[in-house]
């Protein structure tokens, strides 16, 4: 039986909170840029960008990052994973970058993302935002902005559901097989 941790209205409230938190320290938003991680992080990043546009009237640059080529588990995979597109249409040098993903778990994806971003330049500051932090870190990594923190078992599956892909917004935890 899946248990629902966030409903659509909580979800939207969290997006608005992120938009506030991201922009709070800035009078001028020009040093700020957001990068969404493929696949679900991209949709969340777009929502945050849209919210920022609504109440600050500024379009914050948005990039898309795929970390496939930086994974550390190639040796244990039988088939190579299909890579998705990366598109970062701005220069990272000197910017405050906020990386956005759906779920923070072992921290290995974030590590790969940090390595990937360094080949695009040298940001002034790099921070990380996730919708759900489910624990079980395998690397010394933590998030700067968190939607909800949920203690989980490793056998459970945490899914961030999105209207664009799943027809509804929310966060759902299901028992693993």
């Amino acid at each position: 039986m899946p248990s629902r941790l966030l409903h659509a209205d909580d979800f939207d409230r969290t997006i608005r909170r992120f938009a506030q938190q991201f922009t709070e320290p800035y009078d001028d938003l020009s040093p700020l840029a957001i990068i969404g991680m493929q696949t679900r992080g991209v949709y969340i990043a777009k929502r945050i960008r849209d919210r920022i546009r609504e109440f600050r009237g500024v379009e914050v640059p948005l990039g898309v990052l795929d970390i496939t080529f930086y994974r550390d588990d190639f040796r244990s995979l039988d088939k190579v994973p299909t890579a998705k597109i990366t598109e970062i249409p701005f220069d990272l040098d000197g910017l405050d970058i906020i990386l956005v993903d759906d779920v923070l778990y072992t921290g290995r994806t974030v590590r790969a993302a940090m390595e990937a971003l360094m080949s695009f330049g040298r940001p002034h500051r790099l921070r990380f935002c996730c919708m759900v932090d489910r624990g079980h870190r395998e690397l010394p990594i933590s998030a700067d902005f968190v939607g909800i923190t949920v203690p989980t078992y490793t056998t459970e599956r945490v899914q961030v559901r999105l209207a664009e892909l799943d027809g509804e917004d929310g966060v759902v935890v299901t028992e693993g097989a």
Binding site: D66, R75, T82, I85, E115, S119, F120
Partner: peptide
């Protein structure tokens, strides 16, 4: 998949560590 590699070639550091082993 070629499309994703074409993008890598446009990066300031046009390299990935995928085949390092």
């Amino acid at each position: 998949q070629t499309r994703t590699f074409r993008e890598i070639l446009e990066r300031p550091v046009p390299k990935v560590p995928t085949l390092r082993d």
